[in-house]
Each structure stands twice: as C-alpha cells, then as structure tokens.
Nucleic acid binder design. Structure first.
Lengths: 188, 188
DNA sequence: CCATAATATATCATTTAGATATATTGGTCA
DNA sequence: TGACCAATATATCTAAATGATATATTATGG
C-alpha cells in the first residue's frame, strides 16, 4: 500500500472541515478557488480519501439515492480529523515550490529570437490580466457575503493574495517586454 | 529505462548552452539563481544528463585530473542539443504550478487560533524581505557586469521577477496580518 | 429521444521530490 | 602532521504528484 504522507491529506481535511464533499467536488473546488496557490489531481484525491477513512480521520457515506446522486461517495471529517488538521496548521509552512516555465524561457532567451520571448510575454500578460479580474471578482463576492453576515475573511485573504501575485506578474512582464525591446533597439 | 520527457531536460540544455557543467554544479546553480522560479533534484539531473548523452544532445568528458577534479564528469551541449533547446523555447510555456503552503493554512485559518496564522505570516514576511534583498543584490551584480560589457539582460529579468514576486508576497502578508488583527478586535 | 456536457470514481505510467549512501578533496587548527 | 569538517561530486531509492485515460451515470438542450 502506498504511503501518501504528503500535503494532499491536509488539503482534503481542510476542505472537509467546512462541509462534507465528494472527491469530484474537492477536485473542482481546488481548480476553481485554490488554483493560484495549490493543485491536486484525482490520482492523489481518491487514494487520499480512502486513506483518511482507514485512519479514522474521515468517514464515507454511500448516498446512492440522493437528489443528483450517481453512486457518489460523500466524505465527512471526524473529530480525529479535525485534531489532525489543527496540529498541522500549527506547524511552520514549508517553503513554497514554484515552476514558472516562462521564466525559464526568458532566462534562456539568448538561444532564440527576442520576438519569440515577446510573444510569450504577451500571452502571459493577457492571462495574468484575466486572473487579476477573476480574483477581484472573488473579492467582491466574499465582500457581499460578509455584508450578509457570513465570515469569509480567510478565503478572501487568499483571493487577495491572488490579486497581488497576478498583478505583480503582469507588471513584471510589461517591464520585461520594454527592456527586451530597448535592448533590440540598441543592437539594431 | 525511464522515459524522462519532462522539463528537466530543457533546463539542463539551457544551462549547458552557456557553458559546460557537472551535474553537481547544475544543481547548485539552480538552487542559487533559479530557486525563485524553478527547482530540480539530483534524482532528475543525473539520469537526465545520461539520457541527453544517449540522445546525442550532450557529450560527457571524463576529467579525472583537472585542477579540483574528483572524478568529475563535465557535460557539454552539442549542435543537436542547441537545436532541441531552440525548438522548445518556441513552444508556448505551460501554465505555472505553484504550491504556497502558507496560503493553504491561511485558507483553513478558521480551524486554529489567529495567533498561529499571525506567527506564520511573521516568518513569511521576514523570509520574503530577505529574498527581496537577495534579488536586488543579483540585480546590482548583473548591472555591474553590464557596465563591463557582459550582457546579462535575460538573467537580470528573472532576478527582476524575483523582486516583483517577493515584494508582492511581503506586501500581501503585511496586509493579511492587519486584516486578521482587525477581525480579532471586532470579535473581542 | 438523441447528443452532449457535467458528474463521479478509479487507476496507471510518468515525472518530480527528498533523502540518503558513498567517496574524495581542501582547508583549519591543535 | 594528522584529525576533522565542509564542500564537491556521483548515484540511487522511496515516496509523492501529475496527467492521461477508462468507465458509467445523469442532466439538459435541441
């Protein structure tokens, strides 16, 4: 049996702490709301869920007849699970792991034409522009919920981080384009 | 034999394109200068180097007697390797993968005391503060090289990106601390 | 009522990360 | 001089994470 002592376990526990979920929903949520700082694949989620149950940190309920049910398995957190989550939250977070392929390509830019990089940077700017918009959308939605009395401070903070990250990346890319273009002019 | 068609191959080619290197030096360079946007482990580097040689994209020279040589294997890129690198540079970069564990913990903050988060954020701010300084140091070093006539535009751009990312993260964390503290006051 | 998109679970082959084993060399300091 | 430690260097193994795919059901739109 696989060990699976990575972070996936805690992500899932954290999500189940809010409400019971299916593996599929967990995946969708991470894609939609966490994607700017975390990602998980089905290959981790489904085995992790089984492991959580076997460790007594979650329980599974077979809801074959509920509403939109298609043999879906809904998982809920246990008290032991909450304890495990709480203990992990106290531990110092590990240093973040990033893989920005565009930076790799910029770094090796001397091995291609500047136009290639400028093209990649254009795409990158457009993408980050859109992401900033998305994150601001989340911010507003959370703000509206707050007015209604639902506290979303922590979720809102992660959206805010998205705004900061994506804005910074966009600004950098704009600056990078300028510098590369100027360099071109100097040479030509 | 393993397939190994990931990105490691191209990172190594990109580095060898500048100068011949040993696996160990490649690892050190990535740790020192690329760590804010990329990481590789020995478990990828050494097998990848062998694969590059077997594919004719690099050649290895056994320098057992050179200077500080301890049976070190120096790898150089071939013309085929340069072609491969150049082709890859043209491809659209993949979407970046990030894992910010601190954001996960902030997101699940409702399951612990605010003080725990504030503590993590303090560490995070300190770390990013230092990283901004480091990146600015790199910037200056590259600027000095430029004055001497050595063109480091592309490396400098990645350092600049580091400045942007780490500054943004620090600013966000400062803001996050404020918001969490205010929330505390409101409740208390 | 058919096609298609979304829901849902599951697994497999790669790819990546992290830890460790091993050995040599260079420098320090008692 | 030798004892010791840090840095250099190659290599491999386990575990974790990714990406792709197989399979089936249900909801909905025309």
């Amino acid at each position: 049996m696989k060990e699976n002592t990575g972070k996936s376990k805690y992500v899932i526990l954290g999500m189940l702490a809010r409400m019971p979920l299916t593996g599929y929903t967990i995946k969708k949520w991470i894609e939609n709301e966490y994607s700017h700082f975390w990602q998980e694949s089905y290959g981790q989620i489904y085995p992790s869920l089984k492991k959580l149950v076997s460790e007594g940190l979650a329980v599974s309920s077979d809801n074959t007849g509920t509403g939109n049910g298609r043999g879906q398995i809904v998982y809920s957190i246990t008290d032991a699970g909450r304890k495990e989550l709480s203990d992990w939250l106290r531990e110092e977070p590990e240093i973040e792991k990033l893989r920005y392929e565009i930076l790799l390509k910029v770094s090796f830019g001397g091995n291609t034409e500047p136009e290639v990089l400028l093209g990649h940077l254009d795409d990158f700017i457009r993408r980050n522009e859109k992401l900033v918009k998305d994150m601001n959308g989340y911010m507003e939605r959370f703000e509206a919920l707050k007015v209604q009395g639902t506290d979303c401070t922590y979720s809102q903070l992660t959206a805010l981080c998205g705004v900061y990250i994506y804005s910074a990346m966009r600004d950098w890319a704009v600056m990078a384009k300028e510098i590369i273009s100027e360099k071109e002019v100097d040479l030509g």
